[in-house]
């Protein structure tokens, strides 16, 4: 699935000088299977872009197309279909349910598509070192552990694109490296594309391209 951004600009940034940006008000094409890094200093609209790509924000100029289809035409059901089968996500604010266990949080996504077996996502959790946290209610976990739960949840479904907004902010070097390896491996295995949006430069993924927001 090809993602194309055409003269895209979120409404809150209309007064801003975006000439430095490689994305805002530009033509951008992301081919499937590509690993893309979006380097986004504070205030450049990183989370806005994430939400626009995922259909949670609609206040923008220009257009986003998936395989040539303008997402502005999508209704909630179409978006839900896309999220179920084609796009997976790690939110900066994680969006996990605090009263459910880590396993249940992951299960909630895994059950929907039912294509990644429990044994598979349990092995992802093991690689990220949160096996023992799976049975615990989420509100008892540390921020770093939660971040890894969110990553496993995103991997517990098939996807064409994985979008991650600041996924490693609470992880140490070691865990970042482990997570990046796992994610890269899975994306290659599934021939899926990856978009990582981060404040800082990043050397954990073998990116095909980097854009400054």
């Amino acid at each position: 699935m090809e993602i194309r951004l055409q003269q895209l600009l979120p409404n809150p940034l209309t007064d801003r000088d975006t000439s430095d940006s490689a994305i805002w008000r530009k033509e951008v094409v992301w081919q499937s299977g590509q690993l893309t890094h979006v380097h986004a200093p504070s205030g450049t609209g990183k989370t806005s872009l994430t939400h626009m790509l995922y259909g949670l924000r609609h206040d923008y100029q220009g257009a986003i197309t998936y395989d040539g289809r303008d997402v502005a035409q999508f209704d909630l059901r179409t978006w839900c279909g896309l999220r179920k089968d084609h796009i997976s996500i790690v939110f900066q604010d994680l969006r996990l349910l605090p009263n459910y266990t880590a396993a249940e949080n992951i299960q909630l996504n895994a059950e929907l598509q039912d294509s990644v077996p429990r044994s598979a996502w349990e092995s992802y959790a093991a690689e990220l070192g949160i096996t023992h946290q799976l049975a615990q209610p989420l509100h008892q976990l540390s921020q770093g552990e939660r971040q890894r739960v969110a990553i496993v949840r995103a991997l517990a479904q098939q996807f064409d694109w994985l979008i991650m907004d600041e996924p490693f902010s609470h992880l140490d070097e070691n865990n970042r490296s482990k997570a990046a390896t796992l994610i890269t491996h899975i994306c290659e295995e599934r021939a899926a594309g990856l978009v990582v949006l981060q404040l800082n430069e990043d050397h954990y993924f073998p990116y095909h391209q980097t854009f400054r927001l």
């Binding site: 949670l56 279909g81 896309l82 999220r83 969006r95 349910l97 909630l108 996504n109 929907l112």
Partner: peptide, 8 residues
């Protein structure tokens, strides 16, 4: 969250 994750 369910709608966000893609539940119909």
């Amino acid at each position: 969250l369910m709608l966000t994750l893609g539940y119909d």
